[in-house]
Amino acid sequence: MSDYQRTVIPVIEAAYDSMTAVEKTIADFFINNNERMDFAAKRVAQRLFVSEASLSRFAKKCGFKGYREFLYHYDSTFTQNKKVVDNLTKGVLNTYQELLNKSYALVDEQQMQRIALRLGRNPRVFVYGKGSSGMAAQEVKLRFMRLGLDVEAIVDTHIMKMNSVLVNEKSLVIGISIRGKTPEVLSSLRAAKEHGAKTVLITGNAAGSYPYCDEILPIAVTKNLEGGNIISPQFPILVMVDIFYAYFLNTDLVSKSALYLNTLGALSKVPEE
Rank of each mutant, 00 (worst) to 15 (best):
Asp3Tyr: 14
Val8Ala: 00
Pro10Asp: 00
Pro10Gln: 00
Ile12Asn: 01
Tyr16Cys: 04
Asp17Lys: 12
Met19Arg: 03
Thr20Arg: 01
Val22Met: 04
Lys24Phe: 04
Thr25Val: 12
Phe30Pro: 01
Ile31Leu: 02
Asn34Thr: 06
Met37Asn: 13
Ala41Arg: 00
Gln46Asp: 15
Arg47Asn: 12
Leu48Gly: 02
Glu52Asn: 05
Leu55Arg: 01
Ser56Lys: 09
Phe58Thr: 03
Lys60Arg: 07
Tyr67Met: 01
Arg68Gln: 05
Arg68Trp: 02
Leu71Ser: 02
Asp75Val: 12
Ser76Val: 14
Ser76Asp: 13
Lys83Leu: 15
Val84Ala: 14
Leu88Cys: 03
Thr89Trp: 05
Asn101Asp: 15
Ser103Asn: 10
Ser103Ile: 05
Tyr104His: 14
Ala105Phe: 09
Asp108Glu: 14
Gln110Glu: 14
Ile115Cys: 01
Ile115Thr: 00
Arg121Gln: 13
Arg121Cys: 13
Val125Arg: 01
Phe126Leu: 08
Tyr128Ile: 01
Gly129Ser: 09
Lys130Asp: 13
Gly134Asn: 06
Ala136Val: 15
Ala137Trp: 08
Gln138Glu: 13
Val140Asp: 08
Leu147Val: 12
Leu149Thr: 05
Asp150Thr: 15
Val155Gln: 09
His158Tyr: 15
Ile159Trp: 15
Met160Glu: 05
Met160Val: 05
Lys161Cys: 14
Asn168Gln: 08
Ser171Met: 06
Leu172Cys: 02
Ser177Thr: 07
Ser177Gly: 07
Arg179His: 13
Arg179Pro: 11
Pro183Lys: 07
Glu184Ile: 00
Val185Gln: 04
Leu186Phe: 01
Ala192Met: 01
Lys198Pro: 12
Lys198Arg: 14
Lys198Asp: 12
Val200Asn: 09
Val200Met: 10
Ala206Cys: 10
Gly208Glu: 05
Tyr212Lys: 02
Cys213Met: 06
Glu215Asn: 03
Ile216Cys: 10
Lys223Tyr: 15
Asn224Met: 07
Glu226Ser: 10
Gly227Gln: 07
Gly228Asn: 07
Ser232Arg: 08
Pro233Cys: 06
Gln234Asn: 14
Pro236Phe: 07
Leu238Gln: 09
Val239Tyr: 11
Tyr247Glu: 07
Phe248Asn: 03
Asp252Pro: 06
Asp252Gly: 08
Leu253Trp: 14
Val254Lys: 14
Lys256Gln: 05
Ser257Gln: 10
Asn262Val: 11
Thr263Ala: 11
Ala266Asp: 11
Ser268Cys: 10
Lys269Glu: 15
Val270Tyr: 08
Pro271Gly: 06
Glu273Gln: 10
